[in-house]
């Protein structure tokens, strides 16, 4: 009799476990969508198209983490690109700490790119959280990829001396290494999304975008004698987007 009771308890527990597992399985395990975004800033703008694959985590599947791919096209008029290499731009190059490190403004020279136009294709990392049944907040950032774009003329300014750079070109490779350690053109977004229906959503976006140009004939000679051809623009843009849920 005692044995039967124990078996009965085990069966009930097992059934309960199966039942709860089955309920979890009914909730979606992943979320796939495509985004189209347009942003503007001072004398500049960007459009982006991305694919996102997020895994949904937690008992209520509110938290999302995932990967994706994004095409970003950045354009502007007469934008200043400053000295890019981390060892010249910041007081330390230690990963993550560099974000809070002081700027080495004495090393900054300026490349004024007359008509910047940069197209970047990158893998992305994504985070998100379902704030309510319709509201969703998130962050995404480019991790690694490549860039292509138009060559253009630029004006290089160093200690008041101006020199024409006839051919400035976008840096070809992109990789996220935190802060000014980054290479190339990388896009990131904080966004708030509102579900219009099961498929379509609209998004409000704050965009922080690195774009990098390299000189071909003119080189910066830093005070320590370092030669540099990499210059970076950090764009702060705001915009809107639409999102279409695939699954």
């Amino acid at each position: 009799m005692i044995m039967n009771k124990r078996i009965l308890i085990l069966i009930v527990m097992f059934a309960g476990f199966i039942n709860s597992f089955a309920q979890q399985q009914q909730l979606p395990a992943n979320n796939q969508f495509v985004d189209l975004t347009a942003t503007v800033g001072k004398d500049q703008g960007a459009v982006a198209a991305s694919y996102v694959y997020n895994w949904q985590l937690g008992q209520k599947r509110k938290f999302e983490i995932g990967i994706g791919g994004r095409f970003t096209s950045y354009f502007g008029t007469k934008k200043d690109f400053l000295t890019a290499p981390a060892k010249l731009a910041r007081s330390t190059t230690f990963p993550f700490i560099i974000v809070f490190a002081g700027q080495q403004e004495k090393n900054f020279d300026t490349l004024t790119v007359q008509r910047p136009f940069v197209n970047a294709v990158n893998f992305t990392a994504n985070l998100g959280y379902h704030l309510s049944s319709r509201w969703y907040g998130g962050f995404n950032i480019d991790v690694i990829g490549f860039t292509f774009g138009k060559k253009t003329n630029a004006v290089f300014t160093s200690n008041g001396v101006t020199v024409t750079e006839p051919v400035a070109k976008p840096a070809a490779f992109n990789v996220l290494l935190t802060g000014d350690n980054d290479y190339g053109s990388l896009n990131s977004e904080f966004f708030l999304k509102y579900d219009l229906n099961q498929r379509w959503s609209i998004r409000g976006v704050y965009q922080f975008l690195f774009a990098e140009y390299k000189t071909t004939t003119v080189k910066q000679i830093a005070p320590d004698g370092t030669s540099n051809d990499r210059f970076r623009n950090k764009a702060n843009n705001f915009g809107v987007g639409v999102s279409y849920k695939i699954k």
Binding site: A38, T39, V40, G45, V47, T77, V240
Partner: peptide, 11 residues
């Protein structure tokens, strides 16, 4: 419209 405004914003 946003894209058009953005592209036409150049001076």
């Amino acid at each position: 419209l946003v894209v058009v405004v953005a592209t036409s914003c150049s001076k």
